[in-house]
Nucleic acid binder design. Structure first.
Length: 575
DNA sequence: GCCGTTTTCGGCCCGACTGTTTTCAGTCG
């Protein structure tokens, strides 16, 4: 997929144009184009061949031409020119909180600042405060910004921040006079990584609520304190913004602070066309508030149905809402099974009994116990004898009168040469075979892709686990050609996993949507090694929802009997 | 640079906050 590369060139072009002080709307056009292309579920190359680039929202004649240029030359002449005029290192300076393009430009032109180190130096020698438009305060703020930038680890996985946010909400509910309270921002949209925590509240006594917020043990530093807005930095190093609004503005504020920014812009543009104005306080016709108490009202005012937060990324949801074709998203309550857990047999910590008990408590119909295969020694991969021992143990457990059943599965390694880690006569005895790459991450795209292809071709394989191999903040995806993988999965009727472990989330939202559009079955697996993490299923559901999936797209919505039938159908060649 | 059953030119989302300023630019979300 060239999409990501093109999006990146447009994004950087936009940033460079910003520093140059170009027309802000031209800059926005590049930013929007970058976003549109990154979210595409088809190869931009295919669209280009079909001459359909200009059909994309925000892509006109000029940008279409520029996409073609990148596709044929690998780069963009405008971008190359800009790089000569504006040092790329300035893009890094934009990362400093409090520094925007205008200030960066002045710093570069007047003081030759082109790196963080240089910036720190000119602040400390007080050269900055003497610049026009700058002052002592600005100088101090920049130094503070540099410190923050050095400390911050960037965006954090949702799975690290969501539990923290939920804990804070529950504490505030107990200890302060809140009426309504909700997490907003990218956490509410269930983005895979988040930057801060946004909490929205209504209360008869806002000041009291804000005091309680500032007093939380989790708070390291109060950044700003007011009756409607308080910002704090938590001990974990993450910023939290808490806002209190009036009940009649609840819906408008929730929509506003949930974002995304791009989504909000589109909704407000629709409002403008209808002669309305939307802000965080409500929907206004002239001076008069006509909606805002509930989110539904805000959308209805501009002629839209309610759009679930997970879709609010300006990735076509506005158009779908306008044409009445929003998906009926899969819900956590639809999920009846977990497609991937590890037991004590390999590197998991739970016994089969413990897994069953936990699954029962979650109301699941089935759990596929997929331990590692023999080669993966570090993870306690099962020899063939151990594998069959486990098979018998599962059969014994399944004879018990429980509504929950275990499925005899295996996460079988796709070896470096593309062969599978058990011979076919063993594979065919395993109820659910999910194949995975755990070695040779550095191989070329051809090698990795052909390994996955040969796994998909094997008649005993049902699915591919964590199809791209990425681990958030730790490891990039291996060089698999996704288009080719998708085509093969579609052809053979095989499933792809949505790995729900919060550092994987693999497939991610965009890839999930691409797979869904090709009609590829998707299976959510927690890949858990610890029993409590069966609850991580909801992260997988979040990815599915962000990938526009409906109930029918997700194998986990089948009950035990139905899922078993699907497994058998795959073995029969999918007729 | 995009876009148009009101427009092919003249618009383009909105408000809060901060700091440097005598009325506003820059940054942020």
């Amino acid at each position: 997929m060239k999409n990501k590369e093109i999006a990146e060139i447009f994004q950087k072009t936009a940033a460079l144009l910003e520093i140059k002080g170009e027309n802000p709307y031209r800059i926005r056009a590049y930013q929007r184009a970058a976003q549109t292309i990154e979210a595409l579920t088809t190869d931009v190359e295919e669209l280009a061949k079909a001459g359909r680039l200009e059909k994309l929202p925000g892509i006109g004649k000029d940008l279409a031409q520029k996409i073609l240029e990148i596709l044929s030359t690998g780069t963009l002449s405008l971008y190359e020119e800009l790089k000569k005029e504006v040092p790329q290192s300035l893009l890094l300076l934009l990362e400093v909180p409090g520094l925007g393009p205008k200030k960066v430009k002045v710093l570069y032109e007047k003081l030759g600042v082109d790196s963080i180190e240089k910036l720190e130096e000119v602040c400390k020698t007080h050269k900055v405060s003497r610049l026009p438009g700058f002052g002592v305060k600005t100088e101090q703020n920049i130094l503070k910004g540099i410190k923050l930038l050095k400390e911050k680890r960037g965006r954090r996985p949702l799975g690290e921040v969501l539990p923290l946010a939920e804990e804070i909400v529950s504490i505030l509910k107990r200890r302060s006079p809140v009426e309504k309270i909700s997490i907003a921002g990218s956490i509410r949209r269930r983005k895979e990584t988040v930057k801060d925590i946004d909490v929205l509240i209504t209360s008869k006594n806002p000041l009291e609520v804000m005091k309680k917020v500032a007093e939380l043990e989790l708070v390291e530093e109060v950044i700003a304190f007011g009756e409607t807005k308080t910002s704090v930095r938590l001990r974990q190093g993450i910023q939290m913004d808490v806002r209190v609004v009036k009940p009649e503005s609840w819906g408008a504020a929730l929509a506003y602070f949930t974002g995304s920014k791009a989504h909000n812009i589109r909704v407000r543009e629709l409002a403008l066309e209808k002669g309305l104005k939307i802000n965080e306080y409500g929907v206004f016709k002239g001076e008069k508030r006509i909606a805002g108490r509930a989110e539904e009202e805000v959308y209805a005012a501009v002629g839209l149905p309610f759009i679930p937060p997970e879709l609010r990324e300006d990735r076509g949801e506005i158009e779908a809402a306008l044409s009445g074709s929003l998906p009926d998203l899969v819900d956590y309550s639809d999920i009846l099974g977990d497609g991937h857990v590890h037991s004590k047999y390999s590197d998991g910590t739970a016994s089969l009994e413990e897994i069953l008990k936990k699954a029962e408590s979650l109301g699941l119909s089935w759990v596929a116990v997929c331990d590692h295969s023999q080669s993966l020694k570090v993870a306690g991969g099962l020899s063939v004898e151990e594998l069959f021992e486990k098979k018998r143990a599962i059969e014994r457990i399944n004879k018990r009168a429980s509504k929950t059943k275990l499925i005899f599965g295996a996460e079988v390694d796709i070896l470096s040469d593309g062969s599978l880690d058990y011979p076919d006569e063993v594979l065919k005895e395993i109820e659910f075979v999910i194949a995975a790459i755990h070695t040779g991450f550095q191989q070329s795209e051809e090698q990795i892709t052909s390994r996955i292809l040969s796994a998909l071709r094997n008649p005993f394989v049902h699915a591919i686990a964590h199809p791209t191999g990425r681990v958030l903040g730790e490891r990039e995806a291996y060089a698999v050609n996704l288009s080719v993988m998708f085509e093969a999965a579609q052809k053979y009727g095989k499933a792809l996993e949505i790995n729900a472990y919060y550092k994987r989330l693999d497939l991610n939202d965009i890839h999930t949507r691409a797979a869904k559009e090709k009609g590829i079955p998707l299976i959510i697996g927690t890949d858990t090694h610890f029993i409590d993490q069966l609850e991580y299923l909801h992260y997988g559901v979040a990815v599915a929802r962000r990938g526009w999936c409906e109930k029918k797209d997700i194998l986990n919505t089948l009950n035990y009997e139905e899922f078993k039938k699907w497994l058998e159908r795959v073995r029969k060649g999918g007729e």
